Computed example of a mutant assay.
Amino acid sequence: MTSLFPEIVCTEDTLWGSPRVDGRRLAVGDVVSIVHDSLHHALDGHQLTLPQIKQALSYCATLQCKNDKPLVFCHNCSLRSEQEGPLDTSDLEEVISENSVFVKGEKFMFFGSMEDLLKDYRGCDWWMIATDLLIDLRNELPNESTPKLS
């Protein structure tokens, strides 16, 4: 990894090699998602530090993962679906029952519609959200912990 982001690592044996917070099984994309929901929840519920949060957001916002070339991108990122290619839905069936909708296959189950599954598979452009969060949270996040975005 780069020395600009010492809190972020990629190791083959954890999270399939995707970028994550060092010492944790928490991918960079997960941190962005959690902070997007609530900074307080990231700090208290997931026990992340402000420097870890800022580094994860900065790492994502600058698309550092493209330079680091991890084995796989974060599971909820659109870069991952690009990396893996289109989802094969040929053996999947959408089931609509009285109170629920789900998609099932021989060894697969997704609670939601086929449309929801495809949207979930496509992922998010987390780097855009991370950039917005860095701007929105600039007063809460320390300046000394990570490089400035150019």
Score class of each variant (00 low, 15 high):
Q83R: 00
H46L: 01
K66M: 04
L39V: 05
L63S: 09
P6I: 00
C74R: 03
L26F: 03
R138Y: 10
G45W: 00
F108N: 13
D37K: 03
H40R: 08
N99C: 09
L134N: 15
C60V: 01
V31M: 02
A130D: 13
H40P: 09
F5E: 10
E84N: 11
S58K: 05
I8Y: 06
W16F: 04
E12Q: 10
H75L: 03
Q52K: 05
V35H: 03
D68E: 15
V31S: 05
L134V: 12
P86D: 05
L79A: 07
V21L: 04
G23P: 13
T131A: 14
I53H: 05
T2K: 04
D68P: 06
D13P: 07
E106V: 07
S58N: 06
I8Q: 07
E115W: 06
L133C: 03
G23R: 01
V103F: 12
R138H: 15
C65E: 11
D22T: 00
L79E: 14
K119T: 13
V32E: 00
T131Y: 14
R138K: 14
S150R: 02
T2L: 01
S113W: 15
E106C: 06
F102M: 07
A61Q: 06
T14D: 09
G45A: 01
L48Q: 08
L79V: 01
P70N: 04
Q55S: 08
L118D: 08
V31W: 02
F102R: 12
L149G: 05
S97F: 02
I129Y: 00
A130G: 14
Q83I: 00
T146G: 15
F5P: 12
H40N: 11
K104P: 13
L117G: 06
E140C: 09
V95D: 11
Y59Q: 05
G23L: 01
M128S: 14
R20S: 07
T131Q: 15
V32N: 01
I8G: 09
I53L: 02
K107C: 15
R24H: 08
A27T: 13
S145V: 11
I53R: 04
E144A: 12
M114T: 12
K148R: 15
L48P: 15
I96D: 10
H75M: 03
P86Q: 01
L39Q: 07
E82I: 01
G17F: 03
K54G: 07
D132W: 07
G112R: 05
I8E: 10
Q47N: 08
T146E: 15
T146N: 12
C77W: 05
N143G: 15
S33K: 03
V21F: 01
P51I: 00
L39K: 05
C65N: 04
V9R: 10
V9Q: 10
S33Q: 04
G123C: 06
Y121V: 02
F73I: 00
S100P: 13
Y121D: 01
D37E: 09
L43I: 13
A61R: 04
Q55L: 04
S3R: 05
M114P: 13
L26I: 07
T89N: 11
D88Y: 08
V9H: 09
S90H: 10
G17E: 10
Y59G: 05
D68F: 04
T146Q: 09
S18P: 03
K69A: 09
K104N: 12
V72K: 06
A61L: 07
